[in-house]
Design a protein around this nucleic acid. Sequence first.
DNA 1: TTAACCAATGAATACGTATGTATTATGGGA
DNA 2: TCCCATAATACATACGTATTCATTGGTTAA
Lengths: 344, 344
Amino acid sequence: MKDEKPTSFDIAHLAGVSQPTVSRALRNSPLVSEETREKIQAIAKKLNYQVDINARNLRSKETRTLALLLCEDPGTDDSLINPFFLSMLGSITRASGKMGYDLLISFQQQSGDWNADYENAHRADGIIFLGYGDYITYMEKIAHLDRLGAHFITWGPVLAKQPGHFIGCDNLNSAYLSIKHLTDLDHKKIAFLGIASEHRPEFNQRYQGYVKALLEAGLIVNPKLQIDADTSEEMGYEATIELLKGKLQFDAIFGASDLIAIGAIKALQEHGKRVPEDVAVVGFDNIPTASYTNPPLTTVQQDTKLAGELLVENILKLIRGEDVSSILMPAKLIIRDSCGANLS
Amino acid sequence: MKDEKPTSFDIAHLAGVSQPTVSRALRNSPLVSEETREKIQAIAKKLNYQVDINARNLRSKETRTLALLLCEDPGTDDSLINPFFLSMLGSITRASGKMGYDLLISFQQQSGDWNADYENAHRADGIIFLGYGDYITYMEKIAHLDRLGAHFITWGPVLAKQPGHFIGCDNLNSAYLSIKHLTDLDHKKIAFLGIASEHRPEFNQRYQGYVKALLEAGLIVNPKLQIDADTSEEMGYEATIELLKGKLQFDAIFGASDLIAIGAIKALQEHGKRVPEDVAVVGFDNIPTASYTNPPLTTVQQDTKLAGELLVENILKLIRGEDVSSILMPAKLIIRDSCGANLS
DNA sequence: TTAACCAATGAATACGTATGTATTATGGGA
DNA sequence: TCCCATAATACATACGTATTCATTGGTTAA
């Protein structure tokens, strides 16, 4: 029907007032009389008027938009994302909506210039990093962002003396609890499937929890039982094959993520090992599929809903210039059948 | 270090040219000499200059942003979204990024004023609806959007004489294939779990495919074997309980979505029915979990990657004013163990 | 009665970019 | 030599809003 979007001038004209008065009236400024405000708001409603976001943002230098950046693994080209991230994504979307912020989502290569595209271009007031790729590389980028005064927060491992702000799972204690569960069930030769290098500190922290639990149970830590595997079913599968090919005995596997654990179960079963009778398995993340594996996977549940809310809450604090400190989130062990029953 | 974001005027000053020349140089306009352009671009790079998106959008009345709207079911308050939608979301994000568009994501109540917030406010050039809630209600909203000349496309059932533009799965034929698979395996009393009303046309289409396959196999269609269930494990579970409580015999269940089928399997097994020996089960969507249920679920795979790409491609066509027609996407039957082996 | 004051509104302007028009310089053809 | 076409650039302005400052009319206190 109407071709042209109405502007505040149109409304001003119709109401017989000036444009600034319209602007004020629509923002419920106390500077306009109640009578005028009501008249203006009625006209605005009738015309289906909406403030032009771009004009407003240009003028007020604020976007009320957050950017969510997922670092894309160059390897995986198809659209299968880590289900744990998807769950986080859902909770972040809701949380930012609740706070009146729009959410801009983007997949980025780690090689890209992250800041350029978002805050610097006034596209968003702040950035939430969900998957950041390689940690060492990320740190270099962070340093740059920080120098530019960008507002950003990261879902990732909380370390000492870290630049930027992080919210992450208490990997060490969560992994510790998992392993303790295994040792309590009398498992003695527990393999760790996951990258333990500095490039993946969250896995590294889980490895530390693993070591702590073993030592506490009086068991020997055998580094040969640690096999590198990144978060995917394939990597978990292959790592398990490698383990099976080796000469070392093992009676349990800690998969540093559910996908790894799922791949492990598959490999074990294909090679005639029963889970949990021959080999117990635990995972990490509690992705939806974890309760449907056969047997159902004992794993560590991360509270993605709370995590999303905290990420949003804290990035908003940063935007407002308030102080923020990194947050370590406790996780919970979900016990299912993949570890076997307590034999004691 | 620097407090103020540099503007095109700053660059112009440094380069000894005017601001419009900077604008043109950065957009590679043929109106500026190569020499000038290179000088300007070098300065821009050094200053880490980025065009202010808001100013550009205000001026050019274009946002290069798409909005993705998920209609939020008022019932489910937590952040567990339908995994099928999450998969679509991932593919849409990638596709729009590939086309140079930003993606704005929002969960909406069906009661909200969808258009107001996005295109009308110049926040996005077009809208992709992923979950639209109740179809009848949605149609009313669509009519309004259409009248306003909004650009939008919907992932949903393709029907005759539909306003707006839809891209959706070929529900009828896909369900037909599933049921035919069951009848080929000699199942005769097949239940349909899913809402078959006009409020959920995609389920309705699946029901039509179900009917078609039964008739073709010379079987009787018993409406009592259709039980309402919306897409969730709980609803599938409850519908199956209802089925079990009834006096009707059945030897197979078609779950109108994987989540329904998963709930059905759970209910069946809890009540001492073996799957697939006593009751075969098929699902729809091929969510990641489908291959991990016990037994693994035979289901219909939707090509979410292609769907996401088509949605983005076509909304861009609409934005450019090109013609677009609705698209019906073929799906593929994924045969797993939940239907049993061919007995013939 | 008058000065000071407050409430309500209008006028002017800035935000940073993109584009239509005007201007300058340069070169070629007659 | 002069004119015109063309290339390159500058000038002026529009986009729609929000804010600062100025103005108006009416009210209160001295």
